[in-house]
């Protein structure tokens, strides 16, 4: 697609792999990791535009990871994936700055739309910041 980079975080390897294959088939650059800790390491090494984060994971769970990502890289957009329709967790995620949330099993196209939207928002955000920096520079 438009060459933006996606990081997929889910502890269910089978789900992760299949989803990665499907997204890649749609020509989106996607990487997958199986835990919150690994996700943070990965983001450290390579820049990502959007992170798709499962809420329920062993170790660092989705909410914690989200908080950490937003603290370190406020510009990265995060989409939450939940196994259950827990509105509280979703609301908590949104409050912490997640872009949106989806319930598993989700439609691949829906996910892709959300990803695109998230990316657009991120680019818009970045442009604004750049513009301001220029203003300040002058």
């Amino acid at each position: 697609m438009n060459g933006f980079k996606i990081l997929l975080v889910d502890d269910e390897i089978e789900f992760l792999e299949t989803l990665m294959k499907r997204i890649k088939k749609r020509a989106v650059d996607v990487t997958g990791v199986s835990s919150g800790e690994k996700a943070l390491e990965e983001i450290e090494k390579n820049p990502y535009d959007v992170v798709v984060l499962d809420v329920k994971m062993p170790g660092m769970d989705g909410i914690e990871t989200l908080r950490e990502i937003k603290r370190r890289y406020p510009l990265i957009e995060v989409i939450m994936l939940t196994g259950h329709a827990s509105v509280e967790v979703a609301v908590q995620g949104m409050e912490l700055g997640a872009f949106d949330y989806l319930m598993k099993p989700m439609d691949i196209d829906e996910l892709l739309y959300k990803l695109e939207d998230a990316y657009k928002k991120k680019t818009l955000h970045e442009q604004k910041i750049l513009a301001r920096e220029k203003d300040v520079g002058i």
Partner: peptide, 17 residues
Amino acid sequence: AHEINNPVAIMVEEAGW
């Protein structure tokens, strides 16, 4: 529900694939 949702999600993903 949570436990079932995950395998179902995988199945649906595989079918999608």
